[in-house]
Write a protein that binds this DNA or RNA. Structure first.
Lengths: 346, 346
DNA sequence: TTGTAGGCGTTATCAG
DNA sequence: CTGATAACGCCTACAA
């Protein structure tokens, strides 16, 4: 019962035309007489014909597939990516593209599996451990790509969706300063992780603009992206009298909550935090926070939020613009983040 | 500088052999003299040759791509899927397959975009609104597929990774009964959503096995999968004296928290809940729960958990077994869930 | 507006 | 063990 799929030749025969005419109808290209077109469409329907994407790809050297490479330590599996992927998918599907997912593995031959295989027309790179060599490679061979998140690479201005962490963290810090805070901890900066440098810059600029001294002792650095750090540094700052913290990611938030929980500190009474809402969390994390606030249900921690779906959409648009027309175009798109500092009216 | 990629012919010439010999070396198929093989490998390296997957796909009628179709209302964008996708990806990549993501859109021509295009060798279906017609279609044309989550389809036993909700919810309910609870609310059953029926069965069986009456009045139904229900029914049961609830998903949990928050009820003092941890949540959700518990930081809501990564892996294995060898095989794999009812020692 | 010929890069088949 | 030849299904380029 498993009939072989029909091909263009059978359709052509049934319609009494040549393969080319069928091809033209399918692709809406060239001129086809209305009458002929209808004959062809009828034959297509009768044969249950669907164009074979693979054959098409081979003949036209274009697969209409875009790749998404996720650089993640594997330990993290940041669910933030999922919403970005959804955003990319939305745009891709609008343009008639499909998406293919790759999980980057340390030491693999990137080019072979992902680029040189001829499977994809372009690629979007995301994730914490993005390999700069890979970006350089793509640039060198002129393969369409887009990076999500700013990366500082010498003498190279990659196609990028830039997330404006600097602005967001400046705004958040400014909010705290305007609220009268002076000793504000910053946790933390992952060494060698460019986006964290932007966050730090924003934090520092808020102090500068306010004519205040930004005490470097209040900044927590750590090594290794995504590393669990423990709350030792938080405790150290707390002992120095710091009661307010800007937290750069949910990992830092967990550490701070751990500290608060153990010392029975309430939020915001004993400890104020401002967080970057970079990932969604499990119930078990939620329960760590439970009973840590001293206000009624309505209390909202000031937080920086990113519209991840939108970020994915922007990346998709940038890549497809690059793929579809080769003319000179902008290499970067900047996306700003939201800073939310009070419970939205409902 | 954009050198065209080398093809098998060029490699063959450089190695002084035929294309077929190169092909055999690449695919490790057939017998090739050691000496010849080395010549070929050398030529491959010199040409920077990588096999073209598309051409391969056309010639062999096998793309080594598996599709993942996500049926989601678009409003939900359940991040639970992401971990499953990761599990699939892990297995796929072990077997040398790539994965392609499709987001199902209402009313689209499923077959054309996803199956008949010849792009994929098999497909995994997941998501709340899986279309039974699509499953029937795949079964009919004999296309390899696997469904995640049990679906009851007349006269059809689909390839499925079955999630044992029944067992998990029975265990959870039994735990509550053993703790002395008698009036236990169940929220909720989405009409027409098969997995919810399994959850309900588990709940009811716990009562049966305990020789207790399972009051149907304590069961909350709602229409439309994923619909926001509001906490009206929770309130109604609460008024009837129900102080303990089994919640079937995070949506129901939000409603219950909403109710608890407004009425200043504490957990577990005023209200006990047992939840199914089906998705990760945003900080804003977390803050709804904050200050709602009356115990110290260590309190853990009894919860049912699913290893989503593992579910993905099982689906991947099932599909690939189907794709790679046609012999009769098991059509279903059952995955059990965990029930966690106290804070794990740390 | 329509058709013909050739090729995309690989594998299957069959012959040596 | 190795090689020539014919597909695979479609598109590009050119011709009618």
């Amino acid at each position: 019962m498993k009939r072989e799929p029909a091909n263009i030749k059978q359709v052509a025969e049934k319609a009494g035309v040549s393969m080319m005419t069928v091809s033209r109808v399918i692709n809406d290209s060239g001129k086809v007489a209305q009458e002929t077109r209808e004959k062809v469409l009828k034959a297509i329907k009768e044969c249950h014909y669907y164009p074979n994407s693979i054959a098409r790809g081979l003949a036209s050297n274009k697969t209409n597939i875009i790749g998404i490479v996720i650089y993640d330590s594997g330990r993290l599996r940041h669910n933030m990516f999922y919403e970005m992927i959804n955003g990319i998918e939305r745009i891709a599907s609008e343009f008639g593209y499909n998406i293919m997912l790759f999980s980057y593995r340390e030491g693999e031959d990137y080019s072979e599996r992902i680029v040189e295989s001829g499977l994809i027309d372009g690629v979007i790179l995301m994730g914490i451990t993005i390999n700069y060599e890979d970006i350089r490679y793509l640039e060198k061979i002129g393969f369409p790509y887009v990076v999500i998140g700013k990366r500082n690479i010498d003498d190279l201005n990659p196609y990028t969706v830039v997330l404006d962490y600097e602005e967001a963290f400046q705004r958040a810090t400014q909010f705290l300063i305007d609220s009268g805070e002076r000793k504000i901890g910053f946790a933390g900066v992952a060494r060698g992780f460019d986006p964290d440098l932007d966050k730090l810059t924003g934090y520092q600029e808020a102090f500068n603009h306010s004519g205040l001294f930004c005490d470097p002792e209040n900044i927590i650095y750590f090594d290794g992206i995504g590393n669990k750090k423990g709350y030792g540094d938080i405790a150290r700052l707390y002992e120095r009298g710091v009661r307010t913290f800007v937290l750069t990611d949910c990992g830092r938030m967990r550490e701070t909550l751990e500290f608060a929980s153990i010392h029975k500190l309430c939020i915001p009474g004993d400890l104020k935090i401002c967080i970057f809402n970079d990932e969604k969390m499990d119930i078990s994390d939620i329960l760590r926070l439970a009973s840590l606030t001293d206000r009624g249900g309505g209390y909202m921690v000031p937080q920086i939020e990113m519209n991840r779906f939108n970020v994915g959409q922007e990346a998709g648009k940038l890549l497809l613009a690059r793929i579809e027309n080769k003319k000179d175009m902008c290499r970067t798109v900047k996306v700003s983040l939201d800073f939310i500092y009070e419970a939205p009216a409902e």
